[in-house]
Design a binder for these strands. Sequence first.
DNA 1: CTGAAAGCGCTAACAC
DNA 2: GTGTTAGCGCTTTCAG
Lengths: 366, 366
Amino acid sequence: MVQPSAQPLRIPGGPVSAAPTVYDVAQRSGVSIATVSRVYRNPDSVRRETRDRVLATARELGYVPSANARGLASRSTGVLGLCFPDYADPDAEAGAEASDDDDAAMLYSDQIIRGMERAARRHGYALLIAASLNGGPASLVSKVAGRVDGFAVLARTVPTEDLEVISRRLPVVILAGPREIDHLDHIEVANADGQRELTRHLIEDHGLRRLAFVGSEESSPDVEARFRGYREACLAAGVPVPAEPDHRASLMTQTEGDRAVDVLLDRAGEPPRALVFANDQMAVGALRALERRGVRVPADMAVTGFDGIPLSRLVRPALTTVRQPTVRMGEEAVGLLAQRLADRTREPVSLMLPVTPVRRASCGCG
Amino acid sequence: MVQPSAQPLRIPGGPVSAAPTVYDVAQRSGVSIATVSRVYRNPDSVRRETRDRVLATARELGYVPSANARGLASRSTGVLGLCFPDYADPDAEAGAEASDDDDAAMLYSDQIIRGMERAARRHGYALLIAASLNGGPASLVSKVAGRVDGFAVLARTVPTEDLEVISRRLPVVILAGPREIDHLDHIEVANADGQRELTRHLIEDHGLRRLAFVGSEESSPDVEARFRGYREACLAAGVPVPAEPDHRASLMTQTEGDRAVDVLLDRAGEPPRALVFANDQMAVGALRALERRGVRVPADMAVTGFDGIPLSRLVRPALTTVRQPTVRMGEEAVGLLAQRLADRTREPVSLMLPVTPVRRASCGCG
DNA sequence: CTGAAAGCGCTAACAC
DNA sequence: GTGTTAGCGCTTTCAG
């Protein structure tokens, strides 16, 4: 049987010809492009017979609807986005290679991706993820923003000014960190609460009263909040309340945690009995430094971190820390986006998610 | 200062007016739309002065380029995709909630996402991820395929027929499983090698000669390959070679692993000394069942799994298994896609990635 | 270096 | 049920 109008069929694997469009399918199956469109968008609105014919030719031609054209015409994509910074702690990567497997390198962002992916799936959305890499005028932003119905941004990934502009066009939710723009939806975690509770535990349950807090040089709202919680616990327990962290690391990496130990223990005066780090990475580095110096943990020195990264459980002694609800953050983010997509006039929401202290060996528990 | 032509500026947070387009920016900054376009695509081709003016109005208007329109016009998106089945082992989810944290629920697909995300980032692509949920005629496919420059599919996620059609239009790489379509790029893991080595270890290093293999009812190429490796090891060691798995579970879940133990141990004849499961989930379930029955692992019974999921390390005794290079699979997938995008005429590639046996307590090691 | 004009492939009213 | 007709917002020659 000879094909009426040309449109030569292709041999799979051969060079690719121009992709067939609704027009090709329509012409070949003897209907209008509108009908072809309907077959894909709302199958029931087309007579069964017609539909089958269209689907058959589509298949025959290798027709794949262009989501771009679709999005352009319908102004919606069915995709949610996530932008985050290019976290790449060289220490972490190195540690992972040496480690038993890949899990140690699981990052904060990976967990959020997991949460968002699951939630997005439930809501019928796909997820577009992009890490900032710095490019042209509106690189990351234009890459994601123009392609999704709404998206989440990890704090400080996108310049506030850009966010301001974009958020005028589509729903954006800010994750972690402070609410940079007050009319946006926002999700943060109870940093202060977590650090306060952990510190209280050290002081009251373990009877430690000489503590040292290690923060970061760079001002970070998260770290500040944690320090605040630390101070509150000291205050409540009648322990001297420091005005400043005992040490500020230049980066919150393992190497810097290691260095912090040297700084703190070589300082004049009586050394602390507990090292409270603002994140797990530094605490892990500290564990190594202490071992090297022959300081026993937790017998001679308690150590705590913050975040609850997988690595915290793998090190010996296992690290006492405060776990952030990362997966849940991702889920909540999708929830907020979905809600705002449904009602743009809704009042901006700010969620504070609870954290959970995890007591392990490094503080003397377990 | 009064604005010349209307285009009212908006108050952040207020109701959203129609999004500004190149036309708005062009008109307002006194250039043509072509120039606006150039400013974003190739900044150097526009006089600095003009460019700054355009960028300024763009910002003022809250202009965000539409990636859809861009993709439509330029036929490329800068996005790679990943499709995978909606793995949702109820057992795993439940276990995770009870567990210390979220890591236990890290799935195979999550690891691959990690690998692809990192690699995509390095190659300058964003990643679109979508789990199959079954929808209209070409649901998953049309959602992803029309939106990306190329994508990876976890075996059996998309009907082979659909894949056949789509792969005529854009690069596709098949992950794991058999190469359903022989002219596509393909990545698989050395299932047989891994299982053979693990089995050899059980027989030669631990002196076990009465083993039982648990596969799946549903025919799965991965499981078949693992069983093949198992048989090869038996053959090489002079142990009786079974024609069929000793048991086939209906699903490869924890519950079924539990059931398998009952079936195997309540069978007439001498019970096995080692249980070799085709995946970790079942092995974990078996561990629980054995404990309940008072069978000591590994003293009375060795147990092994396959996959190397995080949970395998968390259970007690820790599970001996074979780790799949999941993250690397994701990375390689991006690599293959990037290469094919650069040269469509390239010969199809099939990669076989090595796996690594992980000896832990459940087989008598560690 | 900049502008004009022709699409890219699809959806969405609105007729028939 | 199905066809017609406009765009959606941007890129891309081709002129100037």
